[in-house]
Write a protein that binds this DNA or RNA. Structure first.
Lengths: 207, 207
DNA sequence: CGGACTATTGAAGACGTTCAAGGTATGTGG
DNA sequence: CCACATACCTTGAACGTCTTCAATAGTCCG
C-alpha cells in the first residue's frame, strides 16, 4: 500500500552486529526501533570500548540526529533489529502527538544519560549493575515486553562490561554476587527480578 | 528600556553557591549564562556527589528544560553568575537564528555528556583530568574567554573530583603529575596549557 | 587575627584489573 | 546427528590504581 510509505517511511531490518550508523557521517535516517536491541559506542585506540546509549523497542535512534549534528559515534545492532526508517528531521508540526512524543523521547534519553554519569562516576560495581538491570527491566516493561517479573536480556557480559565501565571478569563476579543474594536470576538471555524493591535497595539514590 | 524586556526576558544575578534550580521542580525559567560558572549535580544518600553538567558563559541552562520535563537535578552557581532569564520553551519560530543556535547548543550538551560517559567509564585518572581541562579550555576559548594559552579555572579540586568521579586526594596527586610533566600550569584559579597537543596526547581517542 | 574552606602529604587498605587457564553453550557443515 | 569451531562464561592468583583515614600547611575573607 502506497499510503504506508509516507515521507519515505519504510520498514528496515538489520542483522546482529550490523551498523545502523557509522561515525563521522551525516545520519541518513532516523530509526524507530520496533524489535531488537542496538547500541551506540566509542572505541579508544587501545581497544577500550564504552557503550554510550542503548536502543530498545519503542526508542528513536538516534534522537539527537534531528538536531542537525553528525553522528559522531557508530550504532550497531546487538540482536537482529526491525525498525521504521523515518526522515531525519523534527517531526511534522501538523502531527502534534508525534512531535510531543518525540521530544519526550529525547528528554528521556538525556535523563538516562545523566543517570548513567552518576552510575559510572560514583557507584560501585554492584550498584552499577543493579542500576543497569533495573533500568533495562523498567524500559522493557514500559515497552510492554516484560512478563511478570521477567524480561529478555540479550546482552553478553562483555557488553554489560562496556556499559558499566568494568571488565568482563568483574561483571561475572558481580553478577554471581547478585545471584547469591537472590536479587536476580539471569540465565540464557533471560532476566528475572524476584523483588524489585530488594534490588533497588542495592543502591542509595536521593531524589 | 521596555524593548529589552521581550517576553519576560531580563537579567538576573546569582551569588556563589546559590541555586538556579532545585530538584523535582518545574523549572521556572531558562537561563542564558553571560558570566560565571554553574553546575548540575546529583547527591547519593551517603554523601557521594556527581556533577553531571557544567554551564559556562554562552551556555543555556538547562537546555533540556524546554523539552517539557522537570528539572530532576539541582543547579548551583560555582562562582557569581550573571544570566539572561528566558521563557522556558522552545525559541520562537520567527527567530530562526535563535532557534538554530539553541538546537546546536542542545546538541553540543548531549555530545559533551556522551564524551563524559567515555571518560568516566574507560579512562584513567590522568586521562580524565586531561580531558576535562582540555574541554574547559576549549569551551572558554570558544566563548572568547581564553587569552593565549590560558583561561580562568574557578573549580576547586573537590569540584574536579565530583566531575571526574575521583577523590579530592587523588585529583591533587594527578594534577601534580600533570604539572611535573609540564603539561599544565594551574594556580590561583588560572589554567595555562603550554602545548595543547602534548596534553591531548595523554589520552588516546579514536574518531 | 581568627575561622573556614582548600590544598598537600603519608601510609595502609580495598576494589577492581590483569593474565591465564579451563569449562560451557551455540551454531554450522558434513 | 555428530563433530568441530567460535564465542561466551567461569575460576584462581597476583597486581595496581585509587580510596580511606589522618594530620599538617596554605589561602581567603570578614
Amino acid at each position: 500500500m502506497l499510503s504506508q510509505v509516507v515521507e519515505g517511511e519504510s520498514q528496515v531490518h538489520f542483522r546482529m552486529h550490523q551498523f545502523l550508523a557509522r561515525e563521522n557521517g551525516k545520519p541518513e535516517a532516523l530509526f524507530y526501533i520496533q524489535e531488537g536491541w542496538a547500541c551506540r559506542y566509542r572505541l579508544l585506540s587501545d581497544g577500550r570500548r564504552q557503550i554510550t546509549a542503548l536502543y530498545l523497542p519503542g526508542d528513536y535512534c538516534d534522537p539527537q540526529w534531528v538536531l542537525g549534528g553528525v553522528s559522531s559515534q557508530p550504532v550497531v545492532a546487538i540482536t537482529n533489529v526491525r525498525a521504521l526508517r523515518l526522515p531525519c528531521r523534527i517531526p511534522s508540526r501538523a502531527d502534534f502527538d508525534g512531535q510531543h512524543a518525540f521530544w519526550k523521547a529525547l528528554a528521556g534519553m538525556i535523563e538516562r544519560q545523566t543517570n548513567w554519569l552518576v552510575s559510572l562516576g560514583r557507584m560501585t560495581a554492584l550498584e552499577r549493575i543493579a542500576h543497569l538491570l533495573l533500568e533495562l527491566f523498567d524500559r522493557m516493561r514500559q515497552a510492554g515486553l516484560a512478563y511478570g517479573q521477567q524480561c529478555a536480556m540479550p546482552l553478553t557480559q562483555i557488553e554489560i562490561a562496556d556499559m558499566t565501565g568494568l571488565t568482563p571478569v568483574h561483571v561475572n563476579r558481580t553478577l554471581q554476587s547478585l545471584r547469591a543474594r537472590e536479587l536476580i536470576e539471569l540465565q540464557s538471555k533471560w532476566l528475572r527480578i524476584p523483588e524489585l524493591s530488594a534490588l533497588r535497595d542495592v543502591f542509595a539514590m536521593t531524589g
